[in-house]
Design a binder for these strands. Structure first.
Lengths: 157, 157
DNA sequence: CACCTTATCAAGAACAATTCCTATTTAAGT
DNA sequence: ACTTAAATAGGAATTGTTCTTGATAAGGTG
């Protein structure tokens, strides 16, 4: 019951609710994710977390991330054979991946909308999850590119 | 220019349009994909294609799949760290993955609908691609499960 | 047709991300 | 303190994919 998480108050309670313990390693991993919501990879979490728990192993980071995911405290985000990324935003949302800078950001689901409004899902199919990814260029990168092309070609507006 | 494919008639023309050749291996791989539209993995294509080209190598199958993808003749489908799958349906569509039998099927985009209708995409973001996956249970598996629970518990309707 | 150039291929090595294994450590509940 | 199960570090193993290399094949040109 992953949704349990939303009705309880602390991540500790949620983890205990699954019969598991909130260890130093798990807390450190969770704190990294909550701290900067950059959708880091396991390796990125690993290097960050080493600041707090200097001899944590990568395998333990993977274990912690799996535990947190199983408890519903974080979501795992996969995109086109790249390394998995982790996201503490529990609301229903899609992801945007910038092709030039690699930045990942959250796109909230609009109120009273469902994916089924856009794709034809036969009604005898039961949907339990959906995963939606957009790719393109983020505003920062678009701006940067414009500046560059102006520099090359100053006359063109 | 991947969209070229839709305006030309034969896959050969499309491949030639990219300065490449339609070889026996590429045709065999393409034919397997067009034949059974089951979203096979590279390994599945490999074993199928061996019937036509007995000593093709797995690396060549990967190369052919990449070439066909680059030319816009097929789409690559990734899902949650599983092996990539390949799909010759060039229309805009999402995918449904059955959690019990692993079947993959296409869900067409509804007419005059866009993913942006459902998720809030800041309008200064440029979207070039989207990838949408649904998970759940297909009708066949749902039926199977019902039969089983009836057998266990014949009174319950 | 002979020649040249480039694309393509098979086979296996290399690689990246993740998972598995095992012995050791830690923690919770008596 | 004792018992039992959970958690960890470290490294080996696995999986899916890409890279490298030398050989082969094909198209275009004189």
């Amino acid at each position: 019951m992953a949704t349990l998480a939303q009705h309880q108050h602390s991540p500790d309670d949620t983890i205990h609710g699954h019969g598991l313990r909130m260890t130093g390693q798990r807390r450190a991993v969770y704190d990294v994710l909550m701290g900067e919501r950059n959708h880091p990879t396991a390796v990125e979490v690993f290097t960050k977390v080493r600041g707090q728990v200097p001899n944590i192993s990568l395998a333990t980071v993977y274990n912690c991330l799996e535990t947190l995911t199983d408890c519903g405290l974080v979501k795992i985000v996969t995109h086109e054979r790249g390394p998995s990324r982790y996201c503490p935003n529990l609301k229903d949302h899609a992801h945007f991946f910038c092709d030039s800078c690699g930045e990942v950001s959250d796109l909230p689901l609009r109120a009273r909308k469902r994916p089924q409004d856009v794709w034809e899902v036969p009604e005898n199919i039961t949907i339990s999850h959906h995963q939606v990814a957009f790719r393109g260029e983020c505003p920062k990168c678009a701006k940067k590119k414009n500046l560059k092309s102006e520099a090359r070609n100053p006359k063109s507006k």
